[in-house]
């Protein structure tokens, strides 16, 4: 049974992952969110480098980016990346944040994972977060002339939004 094999294969624990990644000389912050995965906050400057290393390193080998979530923490805007390794089957969560609400910009990871192309466009559409070097950064769901970014917490639309 496949499942047994997966369990037997040494899945790296969150702790082991944390030890490994913290040895990479990035300025990282490991956060506890009550989540079952390892959460890492990274500075936007070293973000792209960390991401490419997470994918290329044989021990981490996070080749499957399955979820990109835009976030508005109220004060900060940011993106949460959920990564999985198809080889080791471990999962990690990477977060980046910025205080700049006017012009939030991060590096794109669409050169590392092709799926990020669409997911980043979605984040741009709803949160107004721009991605450097993105091949085709424009609105995906909303029309081009849409004003504002609906999933931000400070977005106001008196007609379409029903607030309870």
């Amino acid at each position: 049974m496949d499942l047994m094999k997966v369990n037997k294969r040494a899945v790296m624990t969150n702790e082991a992952l944390q030890n490994l990644i913290s040895s990479w000389n990035f300025e990282l912050e490991f956060t506890e969110e009550g989540s079952q995965f390892l959460n890492i906050s990274v500075k936007p400057e070293s973000f792209h480098q960390l991401m490419s290393q997470l994918k290329s390193n044989n021990e981490t080998y996070f080749d499957y980016l399955f979820c990109v979530t835009g976030m508005d923490w109220g004060k900060e805007l940011g993106v949460i990346y959920h990564l999985e390794s198809t080889k080791h089957r471990h999962i990690i969560v990477i977060k980046i944040k910025t205080d700049d609400r006017e012009n939030p910009t991060f590096d794109t990871v669409s050169d590392i994972w092709k799926t990020a192309d669409f997911h980043e466009r979605e984040v741009f559409d709803f949160f107004g977060i721009k991605f450097n070097n993105h091949p085709n950064l424009k609105r995906l769901f909303l029309t081009d002339e849409w004003e504002g970014f609906p999933l931000r917490k400070d977005y106001v639309d008196e007609i379409n939004m029903v607030i309870k």
Binding site: E33, G34, S35, Q36, F37, F66, C67, V93
Partner: peptide, 8 residues
């Protein structure tokens, strides 16, 4: 509870 939860 406060925190982040993910389920696939």
């Amino acid at each position: 509870p406060k925190g982040e939860f993910y389920q696939k």
